[in-house]
Every structure is written in structure tokens, then in C-alpha cells.
């Protein structure tokens, strides 16, 4: 029996473990290792030690891309989570047609980033796009512009699909959080005669604290991960105006053939996301999660 147990364990663990080490952990280590080299993908690697990182910390375009990525985090915080919260809250209150509404609100989440990007490229299209056509319709012709090329609007325009894509996800996470808010708490508050706004601020939001933190962590990691929209809509242009860390990393290797530098950006991104996640989790009280 003991031998059989041993054998079972080996058969069940080893194949997956080898697969995982070779195809997942090894790439993680490779990313770090290669970030210490200068490499064009063909010639021998030149060991630089931390020079890539030193260059990175003095690279204005990298800072620009980091700033843009944090702009996404900011949008998650002030647009995505609030909209997601209110949608969840009204669905939780069983507004008429709430099931249907929830179904529709969630559709963007299951839609591919490519489809979403293409749909938004239609919105922004200069000649027939919804936005410009609508502005012309209501007589505001002077406001029409090429949204993705105009330096004033490009960054916001390219951020909207990202924000819109995950509002539905934030909604369902917050909705499941709302369902675990004790009813007595809400009833007690209603007995005390609080109004709708006070109820949200003093009763609902504090009980959702942990779920809100989860949404924030999720939003931060998505802001660093989901650069598909930028790659597809503006490719970081005009002149790096809409560059995010992801696109900048991507282009270092695949258009500039500077793989070492690209990997250094990748490691920096990993580092930022992991530090943020840890700090935010630390802020979370361990009491009920």
C-alpha cells in the first residue's frame, strides 16, 4: 500500500510538474536572466549586469508609458469601479429587468479584445464613426476630430475600451460581495432613517471593503496586462503619446530587436504588480478573507 501510494504520487505529480517548470517557471527565470544582457536575438549575448535597468530608469519614454499605465489604474479607480458598483447595487436592489440587464452588462467581458478594439475603432473613425456622425447630427461639427490621432484625445480614446471591457466583471464581483452584506445591517440602518446616499456611504461601502480591494488589485494587474487595445488602436502613437508599459515592452523586442531591454521592462512590470498586490493585501485586514 505504501509503495502504491508513493507510485501514485509520482505518477500524478511529476508529469505536470515537469511541464510547468519547463514551460512556465523557466520562462519566468529566463525573463530575468535575459534582462541582464544586451541581445538582438541572433548575435551572442553581451553581459551588461544592471545596465538595462539603469537605462530604463533614465528613459523618458518609459516614464511616459508608466504614467499612462497609472492613468489606467486611475480610471479603474474613478470610473470602472464606481460604475461597476452602481450597476451592481441597482441590480442587487432588483430593479425591473435586472436579470436581463446583468446579462447584457457582462457581454463585453467575454468579448475578445480584438473585437472590442475594432468596434471602438468604428466609434472613433473620422468620417462615419458614431462619435463624429453624432456630433454632426446635433450641429457640433467643430468638435469632430480624428480621436485616436489628436494629441488631446488619443490617450482617453484608447483607454475607454479597456475601461468598458471590464466594468461588467467589476459589477459581478461587487454584486457577489453585496449578497454577503448582512440584511440586518441594512434594515437597522433603514430603521434609523438614513437616506439612500447615507446607506451607501456608511453601511454598504464599509462592508464591501475587502471586495473593493480585490477589484483594485484586479484593476492594477489588468492595467499592466491588457495592452491589446493600445497595440491594435494606436500602437502607442502619435509619438509615444499613448504608449503603455506593455506596448513599450512589446516593441523593444519585436520592432527594435532589443530583447534584453524588453525583458528588463517585463521584469519591472512584474515587480510593480507584485509589490502593489502585496502592499494592498497587507492593508487588508486578515479578519474575514
Amino acid at each position: 500500500m505504501v509503495r502504491q501510494r508513493m507510485l501514485t504520487l509520482i505518477c500524478f505529480i511529476v508529469p505536470t510538474l515537469l511541464f510547468y517548470i519547463y514551460f512556465f517557471l523557466n520562462p519566468v527565470i529566463d525573463t530575468f536572466y535575459n534582462s541582464l544582457f544586451d541581445w538582438d536575438g541572433i548575435s551572442p549575448k553581451v553581459f551588461l549586469f544592471v545596465d538595462n535597468y539603469i537605462e530604463l530608469f533614465t528613459d523618458p519614454i518609459f516614464y511616459k508609458s508608466l504614467l499612462n499605465t497609472f492613468y489606467w489604474v486611475f480610471l479603474v479607480l474613478v470610473v470602472q469601479i464606481p460604475i461597476g458598483f452602481f450597476l451592481a447595487y441597482f441590480i442587487y436592489q432588483r430593479v425591473k429587468g435586472y436579470k436581463f440587464l446583468r446579462t447584457v452588462y457582462f457581454i463585453p467581458v467575454i468579448t475578445s479584445s480584438v473585437a472590442v478594439s475594432l468596434a471602438f475603432s468604428f466609434i472613433y473613425e473620422a468620417q462615419f464613426g458614431i462619435l463624429n456622425s453624432f456630433l454632426k447630427l446635433i450641429g457640433l461639427d467643430n468638435l469632430t476630430t480624428a480621436w485616436l490621432q489628436d494629441s488631446l484625445t488619443a490617450m482617453t480614446a484608447v483607454s475607454l475600451p479597456f475601461v468598458w471591457n471590464y466594468i461588467g466583471l467589476m459589477m459581478v464581483i461587487l454584486y457577489s460581495g453585496l449578497q454577503s452584506v448582512p440584511n440586518e445591517l441594512i434594515e437597522a440602518a433603514e430603521m434609523d432613517g438614513v437616506n439612500a446616499l447615507q446607506k451607501i456611504v456608511y453601511v454598504i461601502l464599509p462592508s464591501l471593503r475587502n471586495v473593493l480591494v480585490i477589484c483594485l488589485v484586479l484593476g492594477i494587474s489588468y492595467a499592466f496586462k491588457q495592452f491589446d487595445y493600445v497595440l491594435l488602436l494606436t500602437n502607442g502613437g502619435p509619438v509615444h503619446l499613448t504608449e503603455v508599459t506593455g506596448t513599450y515592452m512589446y516593441k523593444q523586442g519585436f520592432s527594435e530587436t532589443r530583447y534584453g531591454y524588453g525583458n528588463a521592462i517585463a521584469i519591472t512590470m512584474m515587480f510593480i504588480v507584485i509589490v502593489f498586490t502585496m502592499v494592498i493585501n497587507r492593508m487588508l485586514q486578515p479578519k474575514d478573507i
Binding site: N26, V28, G41, F227, V273
Partner: peptide, 16 residues
């Protein structure tokens, strides 16, 4: 693996 932003692994995956 859950904490790593997967997209940052594009280079080693590509070369592997």
C-alpha cells in the same frame, strides 16, 4: 504563477 502578469513572458515563450 497567479501573481505574474503573463504578458511579460512573451520573449522567453517566443524563443522557447
Amino acid at each position: 504563477g497567479l501573481t505574474i502578469p503573463l504578458q511579460s513572458l512573451i520573449y522567453p515563450m517566443f524563443f522557447k
